[in-house]
């Protein structure tokens, strides 16, 4: 079962005084599984936002196929199961936080106003904005806007949430808070989350799956761990020798077992054994270089 299946998606734009066709998406294929956080990575101009807009029906693809929730096409029913937070969102600044959520709630649910208000109160509590519900959005900070934007994406309790650069422009506190919210939405509420980001450490920490695109094509699709394990750098043993913590690196599993036996025979206490993989940042650069060469 997949929440989204994109097949051979192509999109080009005409740009310039004498219009020239610029191919942005050159046949994108990937799928999203329910209940998982999938990161959508790629350099600037790789085609992330265009892909997302094609998925959401905001751009008409030249060709290709997009299916939602097991083979359905995008229609009103499907739209009511999707939540979206755009990049650098600007919202109606004359509305208060509560009015803003009522507006989006009325547009996408059939809840009675009293039930909607309860839902809004829950959401505002979740994103820690209950104190600012009567404040106009023009008085919100960047972090608060991102949080209220996240709340509007969830107002209709969607099964699939698409977030375009949700962490961009946020301070570390804000990024941490939003990361925790994304995890809660996916792991506790079982929603599929698909988000694009430039911030690779955040993506590495959050995403079980990754889709990486480069120049309008998917260059990696799969589990984050599998990507990171492609380059295995041995193991690290953290142990205490006479009350002093020390680290030891070993190349392979055989050596690891030997070292463990040795350390224990010497009465050292082993605290941690870490598998050393490359970071997502390194993996991303490797993919970029691979494709260049």
């Amino acid at each position: 079962m997949s929440v989204l299946k994109v097949s051979n998606l192509k999109k080009s734009y005409k740009a310039g005084f004498i219009p020239r066709t610029q191919e942005v998406l050159k046949g994108i294929d990937f799928s999203i599984e329910p209940g998982k956080i999938t990161g959508f990575l790629g350099a600037n101009g790789a085609g992330k936002t265009t892909t997302m807009k094609c998925i959401l029906g905001l751009c008409e693809p030249d060709s290709g196929d997009i299916r939602y929730f097991n083979n359905q096409l995008l229609d009103r029913k499907v739209k009511s199961k999707i939540g979206f937070l755009p990049e650098r969102p600007y919202f109606y600044e004359y509305l208060t936080g509560e009015e803003f959520l009522i507006f989006y709630g009325q547009l996408s649910t059939n809840l009675k106003k009293s039930d909607l208000k309860i839902r809004i109160k829950d959401l505002l509590t979740k994103v820690d904005l209950l104190h600012a519900k009567d404040k106009a959005l023009r008085g919100y900070s960047k972090g608060m806007l991102q949080k209220i934007g996240f709340a509007q994406a969830l107002i209709h309790d969607p099964d699939f949430v698409i977030l375009d650069e949700p962490m961009s422009g946020l301070d570390p506190d804000g990024r941490y808070y939003l990361s925790e919210l994304i995890k809660e939405v996916a792991h506790q509420e079982g929603k599929a989350v698909f988000f694009s980001s430039h911030l690779l450490p955040d993506a590495e920490r959050l995403c079980q799956n990754l889709v990486i695109i480069k120049n309008g094509k998917v260059v990696f699709e799969g589990e984050t761990l599998k990507l990171l394990e492609q380059v295995h750098r041995g193991f690290e043993i953290v142990f205490a020798k006479q009350e002093k913590l020390e680290k030891l690196k070993v190349e392979d599993e055989n050596e690891l077992q030997k070292k463990i036996d040795y350390l224990r025979s010497e009465n050292n206490r082993i605290f941690e054994i870490k598998k050393l993989n490359m970071s997502l940042e390194e993996a991303f650069v490797n993919i970029a270089l691979e494709k260049k060469s």
Binding site: L56, G57, K77, F84, P86, Y92
Partner: peptide, 12 residues
């Protein structure tokens, strides 16, 4: 201001 993006993704 791109508010249209959050509207047109709704059942509208």
């Amino acid at each position: 201001k791109k508010t249209i993006l959050t509207l047109l993704v709704r059942p509208l």
